[in-house]
Design a protein around this nucleic acid. Structure first.
Length: 881
DNA sequence: CGCTCCCGCCATGCC
DNA sequence: GGCATGGCGGGAGCG
């Protein structure tokens, strides 16, 4: 093994020149390698197995004296190796001479040779920029440190920066997973978006980077108090851990790195001076910048800059200002991030084979993300991330595994989310905006919009596009996930186009998902405020729009359940609610009823529509419903738009509840077609479709009675969703619903708990694939449920929104009917079973359910359905079948 | 002399 | 107490 590694490394490393010393060394000992005989590592190394094992052994053997020398030498070794290419290590070591060594020592490498930048290059040389998706490369800190001959501390510096760009992710204690640059563009995109949010305004207006930056600083202070700390991108996981530990500002280096990169991306000139960057960064963090802090910050920036330079993303330059010449860095990396979604799409849409895993991963990520968002992601996380978690555990994560994991997850999630979104968006075209609360905001991709949706004007978050595929996958998912390679292909295949276009319904893929997640978590948390605030604050501040979204969420929640915890907290949301109202309500009719079926069926399309009811909306909706119906078609778009907006907003809010909104029961109204409701804010992504016909009556849920009802159904975009696992209703547990917990939990993977939100809602679904199959099925899902479908709801509804919660089972692919929850038995689908279903994605309620097919037919709504509510989920695309 | 930034102390958290 | 992380800043190398 060792050999293997080395060979890998060595050859590749371009490494630069040898250290000066080397020359001398060589001189001295020409043939031999300079290598000193043994180098002793300070740290005892444990594993013989590891690649470095040999070294370690040797080292141990070595005398103490040697150590020192060796240490020095160590640096060289790598180089040598590379140069030599493969000299057998062992030999070299054996040979060593002291004398040689000494000389070496004397010559000791100059400081430059020990620079972090150089070290980083060596580090990077060891790993492929674009690793095969399948192969997962794990990085052992100890191993790398010993190989590169540096202290572990230095490796942390490198890894933390790389992690901020998602080139690597922490898997466990001392272990990182190398992802390569597959996701780099996505990550950058996300950062850019996030940066725009944060700094953008300023930037835009201005341009001068510097100046801007300064301004930013100021601005930010004002605006974003909270956010400051948070990493822009969550992936890092900023706080995920949050609760537990925010204490250490953790990962400030990571956060700083992200922010630093953001500054470049936002800057027109692409040049950022260190002092400005330092000021900005400090300001965010603190108001007063004291000199010492400034100096420290600058030091850190140098560290980061060195790594970024090694990555080829920036280069050092000097800017001459009035004050004089100042050190600065110029961004030389990619500026546009076209790729975006490809990969994502592919994956998600694909529905394919991979999908599961990927989806799972995505979902997880998403979930986590959502959770993460500031809060804790706990449950979701845990459940969600089985894979990763497992792995990690295995590896034994070191510290706060959870947190870290979470973080990681988060980041991954984020990535995924973004990816998903992108995909979705692309697919859909409309994309939604944002949903995600992620710290980073994702922007919708402008490009496609098949559908209609426009993006928000502001677009608060840009989505990142990119290829995300890799992201998470790698990590969380096991390998497969990675199909990164596929991206393109898949994309195309799956392509957004497919999805969206055909579908009758709208899908909101990603965004919705995201939102959901967020919301859920929040709910769970029940402390929306804070969280929201944080994230939101940033975003919110940045974006005025945001609020609305929040509102929506909240509103829905509120409506639905007063009790819902979340509600309170978010006053703003409430306010916003108003805004929501607009959106929420609108239902759109699916344009294509007929199509819809197809869509659903069609795998590719994946996303189909989802229907959403939102409680809040309900209120509105109910009345509105009719209107909506009419409008529907029009609305479609509108809704979407709204959704987008809302989504945007969401960002601020974290996650909370938006999704819930969906709960709204718009249903009533819609008869015939499905209505599409857009969720306002948070949900944005989710859409619910209801059959118009059915709804009303059948579903009692619907509106009338319950405004709050939440309908459980949600659609998720297929592809996009795929990734996500699911959503759960918050309440599963909850009281109300009888829901079997299991269902959700099963889903676990994703689970969120939305409970709070519960309000209603929710539910969701995700694509099948995404979901984990494993998960347990949602109970209700089934199609056939008993006839009650609606029933439950109603009652529930009545109770209260919150009560309602329906727990929805989540379904992964399938549409699940929430309703069923109550009846666990019936419904639950197993995941697997579901899958197939997914395609269709519809949920029907009891009545309807019968076949999916029927559904399709029904689109029109069938009578049967009428009674029951139908829900459809979309599923993803893919399908398997 | 000032820019860089290496080095490693030491705090924080989790066992 | 030990270990993994990683914040932090002294102070040295270099141009």
């Amino acid at each position: 093994e060792n050999i293997f590694d080395r060979s890998r490394m060595a050859p590749k490393t371009p490494i630069k020149n040898e250290p000066i010393d080397l020359s001398k060394q060589k001189g001295c000992t020409p043939e031999r390698n300079p290598i000193t005989p043994v180098k002793i590592l300070d740290r005892p190394q444990p594993d013989p197995w590891t690649p470095t094992a040999n070294l370690k052994i040797l080292v141990s053997a070595a005398s103490p004296d040697m150590r020192d020398r060796e240490k020095k030498k160590e640096l060289f070794r790598p180089i040598e190796n590379s140069e030599q290419s493969d000299t057998p290590d062992s030999l070299q070591y054996d040979i060593v001479d002291d004398s040689t060594v000494d000389e070496f020592e004397k010559q000791r490498p100059s400081r430059k040779q020990k620079s972090l930048g150089l070290l980083c290059q060596k580090f990077l040389a060891r790993y492929p920029n674009y690793p095969l998706s399948t192969e997962k490369t794990t990085i052992s800190l100890d191993e790398v440190a010993s190989i590169l001959g540096v202290e572990r501390r230095r490796i942390y510096d490198i890894v933390n920066v790389l992690e901020s760009l998602q080139l690597v992710s922490r898997v466990a204690k001392n272990q990182y997973c190398w992802h390569g640059r597959h996701n780099l563009s996505q990550t950058l995109k996300m950062l850019q978006d996030a940066g725009e949010l944060q700094y953008g305004e300023l930037m835009t207006s201005q341009h001068k980077e510097l100046d801007l930056e300064y301004k930013f600083g100021e601005r930010k202070k004002a605006v974003i108090p909270d956010s400051q700390d948070r990493p822009l991108l969550d992936f890092s996981e900023p706080d995920c851990s949050s609760a537990s530990a925010n204490s250490r500002k953790d990962k400030s280096l990571r956060i700083m790195s992200q922010k630093f990169v953001m500054l470049f991306l936002v800057s027109k000139t692409k040049i950022v001076t260190l002092d400005i960057a330092a000021k900005i960064l400090i300001e965010e963090t603190q108001d007063t910048v004291d000199h010492s802090k400034f100096k420290t910050k600058v030091r850190r920036l140098y560290d980061i800059a060195n790594v970024l330079t090694s990555l080829g993303l920036i280069k050092k330059v000097h800017v001459t200002e009035e004050r004089g010449r100042k050190p600065a860095f110029k961004w030389i990396g990619p500026v546009e991030f076209p790729e975006n979604t490809d990969e994502l799409r592919g994956h998600s849409q694909t529905s394919d084979p991979l999908p599961e895993t990927q989806k799972g991963a995505c979902a997880q990520y998403l979930t986590s993300t959502a959770g993460k968002q500031r809060f804790t992601r706990h449950a979701s996380f845990n459940s969600a991330q089985p894979c990763e978690a497992t792995r990690r555990k295995v590896s034994s994560e070191p510290n706060s595994p959870r947190q870290e994991r979470q973080d990681e997850n988060c980041s991954k999630m984020i990535n995924l989310a973004s990816v998903c979104r992108q995909k979705i968006e692309e697919d859909t075209g409309s994309a939604k905006k944002s949903n995600i609360t992620l710290p980073v905001s994702l922007l919708p991709v402008p490009g496609d919009s098949d559908f209609c949706v426009n993006t928000l004007p502001q677009a608060v978050f840009p989505v990142v596009q990119a290829d995300v595929p890799s992201f998470s996958l790698p990590i969380g998912i096991s390998s497969q996930a990675s199909h990164p390679s596929m991206p393109a292909a898949s994309k195309t295949e799956n392509g957004k186009p497919t999805l969206v276009p055909n579908q009758p319904f709208l899908c909101f893929p990603s965004s919705s998902l995201f939102m959901l997640c967020g919301g859920l978590q929040e709910n769970n948390l029940s402390e929306p405020l804070p969280t929201a605030g944080d994230l939101g604050s940033r975003s919110a501040e940045a974006q005025a729009a945001v609020p609305p979204t929040v509102c929506q969420k909240r509103s829905s929640q509120k409506c639905s359940s007063p009790s819902a915890p979340g509600d309170d907290e978010e006053p703003a949301a409430k306010k916003q609610t108003l805004e929501h109202s607009d959106l929420p309500i609108s239902l759109v009719v699916p344009k294509k009823p007929s199509e819809s079926p197809k869509a659903e069926s069609s795998p590719g399309s994946g996303c189909s529509a989802a229907v959403h009811l939102e409680t809040n909306n309900l209120d509105l909706a109910s009345p509105a419903a009719p209107e909506t119906a009419n409008k529907e078609s029009t609305k479609f778009l509108d809704c979407q738009e709204q959704g987008k907006q809302s989504q945007k907003k969401d960002p601020d809010d974290p996650p909370p509840g938006n999704e819930h909104i969906s709960k709204e029961n718009a249903n009533q109204a819609f008869q015939q077609q499905y209505l599409y409701v857009q969720p306002t804010a948070g949900l944005s992504s989710f859409n619910f479709l209801f059959s118009a016909n059915q709804a009303p009556g059948a579903i009692s849920l619907a509106g009338n009675q319950l405004p709050s009802l939440s309908v459980p159904c949600v659609m998720v975009p297929s592809a996009a969703l795929a990734s996500f696992p699911l959503v759960c209703s918050s309440s599963f547990t909850s009281p109300l619903s009888p829901v079997p917990d299991g269902s959700f939990s099963a889903a676990a993977s994703t689970n969120f708990s939305m409970s709070s939100l519960a309000s209603t809602t929710p539910v969701f679904l995700s694509t099948t694939a995404v979901v984990t199959p494993k998960v347990s099925p949602t109970p209700s899902a089934d199609p056939q449920q008993p006839p009650h479908p609606a029933l439950h709801l109603s009652p529930v509804l009545t109770r209260s929104c919150s009560a309602v919660k329906l727990d929805s089972p989540v379904c992964m692919g399938h549409p699940v009917t929430l309703v069923k929850l109550q009846q666990p038995s019936s419904a639950s689908l197993t995941p697997k079973s579901i899958r197939p279903a997914h395609h269709e994605a519809f949920f029907k309620t009891p009545g309807s359910l019968g076949d999916p097919v029927a559904w399709k037919k029904n689109e029109g709504n069938q009578t049967r359905n009428a009674s029951s509510v139908q829900r459809r989920l979309e599923i993803s695309s893919n399908s398997p079948d």
